[in-house]
Design a protein around this nucleic acid. Structure first.
Lengths: 216, 216, 216, 216
DNA sequence: AATGAATGAGCTTTCATTCAT
DNA sequence: TATGAATGAAAGCTCATTCAT
């Protein structure tokens, strides 16, 4: 495997990289790849066994790296956890960004309810969210990360409400509406685990109707 | 629950318990007390450090018992976790029971929205819920416990919807409505952690209005 | 059970005890009974689980005594082990005593070969002997006990050889013969465990013939 | 056995091992060394304190390894015990193998009586045998190992008896003779512990004569 | 005499982390 | 860059033993 990797390095360069790329840049790029591999592997292990039951050796072995080597890319297990939370958070923000770029945000949101429900009901994604939230309860760094991301999303949604009814939505309850809207989706994650037989189509229907009314 | 037990003792058992309560009875009483002490201490430790970071020694020391002695009351750490989840679940069911005993369940629910919101936004309670849900993701015993309790609550809420509109609530979306209603409250737990500045009164107002419309 | 025991105490006295037996004597007797009960229970537990895997609690529970109470009769677990070894040793000596009291010791021994073989091949008795011998390897008190008993048995067997051939058995090899004779029986214990399919009758036949020749 | 391994390396592998032996090969070599060190240390500790009184920490410290590191070579303490039993068994079989390769097995056996007696009377070797046998009484894996080895040795001895008297040894008592022959040696292990003053020369003399007669 | 609550030392085992190579 | 040998600190758990009652 080290051999294979070495070959890749020399062979592939000219094609997908700028010609005079510095050796340092090259190295940084590989380092980034390694970081992503580690995060991927850790994510899989954490999902199955939880943050504190998954061992570094396990993570390393799962993609053929030595445990010791991980420490060249992350200072500690904690930092890996933080890295994973960061990716979650980034994905979360990306979605909000998509919504934000739409012209009719309300319509876009309603169009996405189906996807959103499916996503939130996915039990394995949900389980990790809980792990993260539990971690946030005691790890200030993690807490700060999820709170910061949440603030950004709230700001997007606030704008959406304002866009819908420039005057109608009194500032008075705007934040409440945003909170309830977000709670609706967040709450689905618990639903998925606590009621595995839940019918997705039904939920989507009801949810869309509730949201539509909130926006009226 | 301790209250209930105390009632039993005075109320029902004059026959087999002498006035100077039997030694065996007193022992059982102390044993019960110890079990509760352990659960209380564990709860506190778990809240601060999580199920898997809190050690038995820590729990024991936190209320002055030796670690070894705990094993006279609980067979394993797992069993303590299960015991704590059971207490949560019991409390959860007790609330549903209260609702169930009301004549006008819809009105009772709306009256309780304020309390419900306050409860769900309590960050320390929320943190434990996440810990429990994360645990449920990999511990089947715990999963089964929360699912069973959830099923009971759902059945109460289904009845509430039916009571409101004997014919109006088509069976078709009944479960969806129940799910969304529960998701609303569940979701508040994430809100509380992710947005600590959330205004409770605002949320209550919006939430009450959304719920009222769902029931119409 | 304490009740039952109390009844025994009062009820049975006159019959099986001298009339004016002192209270102290009575107590000593009960204490003896308890000691035997403890040894019996310990023996059973040790047989199944070994000296060091059997716990005091286990032993106590197996016959309805509390663990703590055992310490009123034995100072430590070690002492129980010693007590058990002592009983083994006593039984061993009793057999030698029987032989010793016979007029024709050689004939008596040959008559007993069958029983001896059966006894030594009993795997559960054998297993305990090994436990004892292993213990003797590191516990001087136990070692001393088995060595002392062995010396007595050897002296009986020496006498047997002399009785058979007053002049023939040169002192020169007398001890060697005794040793080999004892080794024959001792060795059967290993045979029983290592070869569970061993045919007892065959062994007895061969063994008797070998012994007869040694005595000629 | 280590000797055998060393031979393999120099003799047979010029092909797949470069002169500066491969890193992987060297590592495997060190790993083997470590396994042997652990078994050696464990053997010594077990001899002094017994399987269940000797702690992993003790074993590790006795040759300067950390306790945790042992688990990189053996999955559990049980496995170490099994490893030690395996070494015993291998040695035991090696002796039977030697005998088997002789042309005149009977003569070879008689020549070896002296060594055999010395070996069996060695109290420290004997003590470990008892530990092993006691363990066999409750650990099926260990029991199976000693029984399998015993079966092999019996088969060699059966052949020896047949070789001596092609027709004379009726199949009828053949197994009995083998059993008694083995019991003689096995029994010496108990003799050595129970009678430390035993004169080895005497025993050898008597034993040789008894064996010779059995074979006649 | 008898209980069983309680302790504390010790056990096996796991694991994040370091470091020589 | 990459390995994996090695450590040491904990973890969960067991148990002989003591002691108030």
């Amino acid at each position: 495997m080290p051999t294979a990797r070495a070959r890749d390095r020399r062979g592939g360069r000219a094609v997908d990289e700028a010609v005079p790329e510095s050796a340092a840049g090259k190295r940084a790029q590989i380092a980034d790849l390694r970081r992503q591999q580690i995060l991927d592997a850790a994510e899989a292990c954490f999902r199955q066994r939880g943050f504190h039951n998954a061992s570094m050796a396990e993570i390393a072995k799962s993609f053929g790296m030595s445990a010791g080597h991980i420490y060249n890319y992350f200072k500690s297990k904690e930092e890996i956890i933080a890295g994973i939370v960061q990716r979650d958070v980034d994905e979360f923000l990306a979605r909000a960004g998509e919504l934000h770029r739409e012209r009719d945000m309300q319509r876009a949101l309603l169009d996405r309810v189906d996807d959103g429900v499916a996503d939130k009901l996915n039990p394995s994604k949900a389980a990790r969210q809980f792990e993260v939230m539990a971690e946030a309860g005691r790890n200030p760094q993690v807490l700060q990360m999820v709170q910061a991301a949440d603030a950004q999303v709230r700001s997007v949604l606030r704008e959406m409400f304002r866009q819908t009814h420039p005057d109608g939505h009194s500032g008075r309850d705007l934040d409440g509406k945003v909170a309830v809207l977000m709670a609706l989706f967040d709450g689905l994650m618990l639903r998925g685990l606590r009621n595995p037989d839940l019918n997705r189509a039904q939920v989507t229907r009801v949810l869309r109707s509730v949201i539509a009314q909130m926006m009226r």
